[in-house]
């Protein structure tokens, strides 16, 4: 199997507002490219089946499980990872106890940041419902939900 010659595929996309060009193996997932080619290890693999959301990134502004995105599909598109978030934007989560072990956290804050940036999506469901794609085994979710509600401007947030 190691003598198998693999195709290489150069792709370009926008990563955390910076242009990025990288050569990938077509069998790689976006998660693999981020973690193992680009060293952006903030994005975690929790289940490799789109259940836990630990690998959540924003693709063209929408949360997606990067374990289910073929890397070749991000060409020409916009990817945002947890590494793009600054400490200031995370203050409410810090205060509310939204992180415990931290393994689900990068995915949680990516979905959360999508909700906070687009509070109109709350018309499609409550915070509790919209966060259902991010499994957390530590908090029971209250700390996470409080952190999001405190971060939404017209819900008592900053």
């Amino acid at each position: 199997m190691s003598n198998e010659q693999r195709d290489r595929l150069p792709i370009s996309f926008t990563l955390n507002d910076q242009p990025m060009r990288v050569e990938i193996d077509p069998a790689e997932r976006l998660l693999d490219v981020l973690r193992y080619r680009l060293g952006l290890t903030g994005t975690k693999e929790g289940c490799a089946e789109g259940e836990c959301g630990a690998c959540t990134v924003l693709l063209d502004g929408l949360p997606v499980d990067s374990c289910l995105v073929p890397a070749y599909q991000v060409r020409g598109r916009r990817v945002e990872t947890v590494e793009s978030l600054d400490a200031e934007s995370l203050a409410t989560y810090h205060a509310s106890g939204a992180t415990q072990c931290g393994a689900c956290t990068p995915g949680v804050v990516m979905t959360a940041s999508w909700i906070v940036r687009h509070p109109e999506v709350l018309g499609r469901g409550s915070v509790r419902e919209l966060m259902a794609g991010n499994l957390c085994r530590c908090t029971g979710y209250d700390g996470i939900i409080e952190g999001i509600e405190d971060a939404i401007p017209d819900r008592g947030g900053a």
Partner: peptide, 12 residues
């Protein structure tokens, strides 16, 4: 659609 997976799945 709202009951298929999560927002992460619905988006894709």
């Amino acid at each position: 659609a709202r009951q298929i997976g999560s927002i992460q799945i619905q988006a894709r």
